[in-house]
């Protein structure tokens, strides 16, 4: 469904993504995991066509997103839904109007039909009866569920999820995770989930891609990832502070900064106690 080839994205001099080759298979839940700053949100935005790559290509059903016209990009986006990290509901519209928004924009459907679709989508996320509320009156979890309903409104072939469970209580997070899994299975859509929530990610994934510093360090079925003997993968999955992935981003030695001496014999980074 979606492929990237030698995808690279730079912000100024910094390489956010470096030579990414991935393949998102149709009808599966692909989970992209990685720590903060690993480039996973950038990758999702590139797949969605919200950013343009510095080099390389992104194929959405055999069309290169970097080369298609703006008009064609909008046409392709009709097949795509996206759930944003902070829901991104339109503030000036009610819950009902938000879910109905894509339908009103792009279809000539009758009001009654739209009403039926919106009611169905809201029932799917368990929020029927909240149609007239404003986004500002909703809790984070509810807003995300409304955004989910909106993303599904056009019955998309592909749905992108940006951190669907972050900032939610365990129950809401569980509900969202199972919604992603269920809808993917039931509607045979393709889901791409970006998350740093290891447990939720591994639970719902058919295919896992692990990013670190803009590169893919592991890829495969959740079971393969769990049993990977790459120390970086194990450190990430188990959330250990010590390992090949440094917690500290400092490039100078802690002891030097404290004592104001510039002695290059000390190791950079902060001091951590070994277990």
């Amino acid at each position: 469904m979606i492929k990237t080839h030698a995808l690279t994205k730079k912000f100024g001099e910094m390489k956010a993504l470096d030579d990414i080759n991935l393949h998102v298979r149709s009808g599966e839940v692909t989970v992209i995991m990685g720590g903060s700053g690993s480039g996973k949100t950038t990758l999702l935005r590139l797949l969605a066509g919200l950013e343009t790559p510095s080099s390389g290509s992104i194929f959405f059903a055999d069309e290169d997103l970097a080369k298609v016209s703006r008009k064609r990009l909008y046409e392709l986006r009709l097949k795509v839904g996206m759930l944003f990290q902070y829901s991104a509901l339109l503030n000036s519209l009610t819950v009902y109007e938000n879910v109905a928004f894509p339908l009103n924009e792009h279809t000539d459907l009758d009001k009654d039909v739209i009403h039926t679709i919106v009611t169905m989508k809201l029932e799917q996320v368990g929020l029927r009866g909240f149609e007239q509320m404003m986004p500002s009156q909703l809790s984070g979890g509810m807003a995300k569920r409304v955004a989910f309903a909106r993303a599904l409104a056009m019955d998309p072939q592909v749905v992108y999820f940006d951190e669907p469970t972050s900032g939610l209580d365990p129950i809401s997070a569980g509900v969202i995770s199972s919604l992603i899994h269920e809808t993917t299975v039931k509607t045979r859509m393709t889901s791409v989930v970006v998350t740093h929530d290891v447990k939720a990610g591994l639970d719902i994934a058919d295919h896992v891609i692990l990013l670190w510093q803009g590169k893919v360090i592991a890829e495969g079925k959740p079971g393969t990832i769990k049993n990977s003997d790459d120390p970086r993968v194990q450190q990430f999955i188990e959330g250990r502070p010590n390992g090949p992935i440094p917690f500290s981003r400092s490039t100078t030695a802690y002891v030097d900064d404290l004592t104001h001496v510039n002695d290059l014999t000390h190791k950079p980074g902060c001091v951590r106690l070994e277990e």
Partner: peptide
Amino acid sequence: GIMRVTEQMDALEMMAVN
């Protein structure tokens, strides 16, 4: 500005609205 901070602009774009 707030629409950009809260990704509403991106949401419009993703819903194929210029």
